[in-house]
Design a binder for these strands. Structure first.
Lengths: 230, 230
DNA sequence: ACAAAAGTGTTTGCATTACACCCATGT
DNA sequence: ACATGGGTGTAATGCAAACACTTTTGT
């Protein structure tokens, strides 16, 4: 090899697919859309589109998500590049998957106008196009992994939430029951929550105290590096 | 949007860059090559090339690594897709980075004929082309992360090795000193090493027992899921 | 005899787990 | 008065960290 001629190299379509995790009283869910174009029109699919030349992948993910769902100000992390040769039957396409966590209730206003987008419980995810089920599987694994090492959930809960909600969130992510007292002790020892005077009275006769995250403390601890085992 | 015309979408060049970690008596290193083509001819660079249409990214990484270095039978993991718009000044290129761990001594015969490839200690990595230093940084972070949660090192050491070598490996990866006795106790408790009768007499007057990995036990434990904190 | 690296156990503190009863309120 | 979910503390256990001396053998 003496000189590389870039023009001789193959070019490919680069897609981005977004796995959006949401949480509400029923548990952990993902957001899917019904495709309105071929191939596979009418099938359920992740939120996806093609990257444009003048944007990087993070930007493409944000644009695509916003364009298809109206969601904005969502921070997404890159998950993995999926590149099986025949993954898209129509044309050679590589897809880079992104994922994000959001609170269903606070973002529902963005979504409400869409009849094509729908939340699915993790256990009831339908068969998706291409390799999208594989992407979902990988995203869940990543989510679980990161839930075990650092506190997440921040983004999945409303501004104010009860301890029980936070615990249920972790139970859905880790897919196992946790002890109430141990969970509370653990979370309190992290010192990233602020207990409010307010109670959520809808949840029981007695009512449950509401909490919110202390973002300053949270970010400070993130830098120092937590450990958070459950 | 009614129908999607794939032909209207932008296509891009997709590159693969490989971060190859190696280990020898001097510590942890990475393998770099001197570019023999433009742009940036003569600069140090990761081992990289372009993906071809008829292969997936894993295959491309293996092909490129083998082509440029002669290395074969190396298992690589995907690290991250780098997509900054102007990362390659010549043309819009997205690069998916892969990384692998190998034992320098056992693979040296593949590399010996190359004058363009060279090992660099982690602390002495030169300035690299494009965003390759960023890739290296991310790969080190990933390596550290995975070293803290599961036993790696398998691939970084020769068939037979001493406890002290294994410990030094972990010390280089984690960049801190570890206690000899605690390290040994920990590793032994995992029950994935086989102690041999043989001793390595080159290393000291007294000599040090050699060990090798028990691959069966190791893979079995991997499935069950270890935890390995140091 | 001594220098150089290998080998070996025990104690201490900290973090995780298991576990059961009372409280406040609406019906 | 009772049913429902919320809230609270302690004891036992397991894991990680700290720590010092003896062994071998080449020079």
């Amino acid at each position: 090899m003496v000189l590389k001629d870039y023009n001789k190299e193959d070019k490919v379509l680069l897609a981005v697919d977004c796995i959006i995790f949401g949480f509400d009283e029923e548990g952990l869910k993902i957001l899917l859309i019904k495709r309105d174009f071929e191939p596979k029109k009418g099938c359920w699919s992740l939120i996806g589109g093609f990257q444009k030349k003048d944007e990087n992948l993070d930007q493409a993910a944000i644009r695509i998500l916003n364009h298809l769902t109206g969601l904005h100000d969502i921070y997404m992390d890159q998950l993995y590049a999926f590149s099986k040769v025949d993954r898209d039957p129509k044309e050679r396409t590589i897809s880079v998957a992104y994922y994000a966590l959001i609170d269903i209730a606070t973002h529902d206003s963005d979504l409400i106008r869409l009849d094509s987008a729908q939340w699915f419980s993790l256990k009831k995810v339908p068969s998706l196009i291409f390799d999208h089920n594989l992407m979902v599987k990988k995203a869940i694994a990543r989510l679980r992994q990161s839930a075990m090492t650092k506190p997440i959930g921040f983004e999945l809960l409303p501004e104010k939430f009860t301890m029980r909600q936070l615990q249920q969130l972790y139970e859905s992510i880790l897919n196992k029951k946790l002890d109430k007292r141990n969970f509370i002790n653990k979370v309190n020892s992290l010192d990233i929550l602020i207990k409010l005077e307010e109670k959520d009275m809808t949840v029981s006769r007695k009512g449950a105290y509401l909490y919110r995250f202390d973002k300053d403390k949270y970010y400070k601890k993130l830098l120092e590096g937590f450990s958070f085992k459950l």
